[in-house]
Design a protein around this nucleic acid. Sequence first.
RNA 1: GCCCCAUUCGUCUAGUGGCCCAGGACGUAGCCCUCUCAAGGCUAAAACAGGGGUUCGAGUCCCCUAUGGGGCACCA
Length: 493
Amino acid sequence: MSTPPARVRFAPSPTGRLHIGGARTALYNYLLARQTGGQFILRFEDTDRRRYQPETEQEIIDGLHWLGLTWDEGPDVGGPHAPYRQSERKQVYLDYAQRLIDGGHAYRCFCTPERLDALREQQNKEKLPGRYDGLCRTLAPETVAARLAAGEPHTIRFHIPEEGTTTVHDLLRGEITFENRNLDDYIIVKSDGYALYHLAVIVDDHLMEITHVIRTAEWLPTFPLHTRIYQAFGWQQPVWIHPSVFLKPSGKGKMSKRESAEMAQEGQSIFLTDLQALGYLPEAVVNWIALMGWSYDDRTEFFQMADLIEKFSLDKLNPSPAAINFSKFDHFNGLHIRALDTDDLALRLKPYFAAAGLDADDATLHSLAPILQERLKTLDEAPEMAGFFFRNRVSPSLEDLVPKGASQEQARSVAQRALDILEAAPGLDHETVGIPLRALADEMGLKAGQVFGVLRGAVTGQRISPPLFESMEIIGKELVLERVRAAIRILED
RNA sequence: GCCCCAUUCGUCUAGUGGCCCAGGACGUAGCCCUCUCAAGGCUAAAACAGGGGUUCGAGUCCCCUAUGGGGCACCA
């Protein structure tokens, strides 16, 4: 496809942590930029100084980097349209607001918050739609000048005609027409002099030559305002694309703060930094969120970033809301763990062992990676599954050592005779010790699984473990024998 | 309450008027493989919200209803 280069942006407001919803929006924008050879821009929409949380800026940057996204222009890397932080562009918006006033598209409003609250309350009581009543719209120019000179606080409102309709166009949804009487004279500059999103986003997108805006459907209600502002300036609109929002797993509504907290209790989260700690691969996150709202065909589901850049297409975006499905996420994580080079897996596993207080050496980690690879659902499971490789001793309980259907005395006898076999054998592989151990099982009237079970408990201290012989080889003969002897002592009690 | 959007298996989705008694994936159940646990293979149950049109023919187009979602701030 020979699409012209797209200039797109991800424009989060640093008022909260980066979650999968924002990440997906960023991803789609990024994919479009990379696919078309265009530019991806990061811009912070931080005009709300009350809700501003400076630390979330870094979290957003780190989270996007973790996913593998890079940008060509942004607050941290600069660019030809700097600054990329809206709080530093205050005067730009003011200048453009003045242009709207001069053109008759906007006006100064001296109504106090108290008056507006009262108005809203009144309208509420009368079951009328809550809208500005237009009091300041018709103020005489001299009056405005006088109140301005007196330093009276005021906002700037964008004027929407009372009559007629406003039609907007979204790539996924086609034309949407709104009755102007259902629209409001929105405030575009606050009394503190900062622009609101509605003005800032349009001025910036225009100045930064944005060609496509991919943002979630929560912006649909103010879409006509945005289109009207473009028209008032006489600017060409970008291509608008509004994918739907993510719904919580039950499908009932958006994720709330409280529910996010509850989710964390169950080892799940929608926040990127949490997902990293929980042992999810960024590759899996990307694959998972890409497919909530976009699809390629009727069977391909496994995607690496490079595939997505190649295959992504706007017309396969889905306009309906998607419920978050964590079990599918786990599935993708497993697939991507298995797709890793074992060296890479070993490298990525190391911090999780460290976090569990285990000093995992590289050599062991490397031999371990292949047998862990097909068992891990998340990386953070590794210490629990394979911690016994990095401990000097293990402490199996009696239940771990005595397999189902066997007595403690049988288990002790198995352990003793297995010890003899292990001591005599030249190696620890399936050939050299597996065959004699199976023979032992036959001789004692036990199943091979029961014999292996005794050894598994002795060597790993667990009832469930990676394959026994591979594990023993990694642990080494000396330590294996030591652990079997320790098990015999436990079984003798 | 008002405005807007959406509606295919429990969930994510394929489907752009005949190829669909609706395909894939996750999850679930069963079987196979197997030293436990996984991974893998096979099989099964499981959906076009309802009603009207348009058409020779509708999951696909239109209308209504219902349901779900989003929005109604000097937040973004």
